[in-house]
Simulated assay, not measured.
Amino acid sequence: MDNDVYGHVNNVQYYSYFDTVINEYLIREGGLDIHAGPVLGVCAESHCTYAAAIAFPSVVTAGLRVAELGRSSVRYELALFDGEADEPAATGWFVHVFVDRETRRPAEITGRMRAALQALVNEA
């Protein structure tokens, strides 16, 4: 499904890769419970710049860092690489607002989740 009629990964898949990379990290390192946890992350904004084509069955390698960490939101920066390539095939950013599962109102990022996100803060 990744490749489109032009024989390369379709642009919409890159956003799916971004989402997968972020959520896998949040689940593993931040303890995010996507099924029953009291807080969830909602995408408020995203962007992708394409530099080169990737085609299935290439292995996509991703880089993830946190550019801004607020009280209830986080802005990630991502890079997608075709396998072991030195230059990214795509770069982008993605903003999560953490909200209460029931009320959908912003929820403060605390504890293990904040620590996991802080570990990715770009200090440069």
Rank of each mutant, 00 (worst) to 15 (best):
S58H: 15
V59F: 14
V59Q: 15
V59H: 15
V59R: 14
V59T: 15
V59M: 15
V60P: 10
V60F: 15
T61R: 14
T61M: 13
A62R: 13
A62T: 13
G63W: 10
L64T: 09
L64I: 07
L64C: 10
L64S: 10
L64A: 09
R65N: 14
R65F: 13
R65K: 14
V66A: 09
V66R: 02
V66S: 08
A67C: 08
A67P: 08
A67W: 02
A67Q: 10
L69D: 03
L69F: 01
L69M: 06
L69W: 00
G70D: 04
G70W: 09
G70K: 05
R71N: 01
R71T: 01
R71Y: 00
S72E: 04
S72W: 12
S72K: 13
S73L: 10
S73M: 10
S73P: 03
V74Y: 00
V74L: 02
V74S: 01
R75N: 04
R75C: 07
R75S: 05
Y76N: 03
Y76F: 11
E77F: 00
E77P: 09
L78E: 07
L78V: 06
L78P: 11
A79Q: 06
A79T: 11
A79Y: 03
A79F: 02
A79P: 09
L80E: 03
L80Q: 02
L80M: 06
L80I: 07
L80D: 02
F81H: 05
F81P: 05
F81K: 05
F81Y: 08
F81M: 06
D82H: 05
D82C: 12
D82P: 05
D82S: 10
G83T: 09
G83C: 08
G83D: 07
E84Y: 03
E84K: 09
E84N: 08
E84F: 04
A85L: 06
D86H: 09
E87W: 12
E87T: 11
E87A: 11
